[in-house]
Amino acid sequence: MLKKRIIPCLDIKDGRTVKGINFEAIQDAGDPIELAQRYVQEGADELMFLDITATLEKRKTLSELVTRIASEINVPFTVGGGINSLDDAKRIIDAGADKISINSSAILNPELITEIVNEFGSQCVVLAIDTKCVDEKWEVFRNGGRTATGLNAIQWAQKGVTLGAGEILLTSMNNDGTKAGFALDITKQISENVSVPVIASGGAGTMQHFFNVFNQTKATGALAASVFHYGQIPIPTLKQFLNKQNIPIRL
């Protein structure tokens, strides 16, 4: 049986892992390679590396980091952040990433999804969507959650899939950093309205939250950062818990 995926996310800034709360307040959280290796040993099914390095110059070091990650870990990993062109995507994939995720750049230039898909295939392209519930509507935000786009999250997800995206990474900004649980309603709506896998992100605080998102939505993956970084939820304990609750999981 196909297993649900537990995906730790490592936010990368200038080659270090960092963690923010509600898209702000950055704290240092360690060496990315060390953390990645630890997660894989503990049973992480995939890893997500999100580069939030501000300057273009420092961002170039990202492909070197990707090469090191690829040589150290043997589970699939996705790299996102600052991928604005086919060339950016190519550099990261050639360095050894299995998938790239695009967010703001796809909103500004939806054709970019198709360009990357035509070169590397749908399975390489994750469309990351940051969404916030405003006046009871789930709106898409770009630029690290700073800029409203007027796009409806469900429609944008569907359009992204039509353009070729092979997977949706859905982050609820209302929930991110709150540890109050995943945004079940929007995750359910999007996962029931696209044909590709959806990863839920934002809000994981307890093991029950992971159960809820797998039990109540069609998400096939759940992504979290701080609960794993700071050891609040050890991955093996989480996976045992989900297994006992009859969620298909890789032990």
Partner: peptide
């Protein structure tokens, strides 16, 4: 959902490649 993406186990294994591998072991498909 298509693609079939993620870790899945086997319903039967046989042959040289699957020495020391059981049907409960998961591998990554996409």
């Amino acid at each position: 959902i298509v693609p079939h993406m993620g870790w899945n186990n086997f319903t039967a294994v046989n042959g040289d490649l699957f020495q020391h591998i059981s049907i409960e072991n998961d591998c990554y498909f996409v």
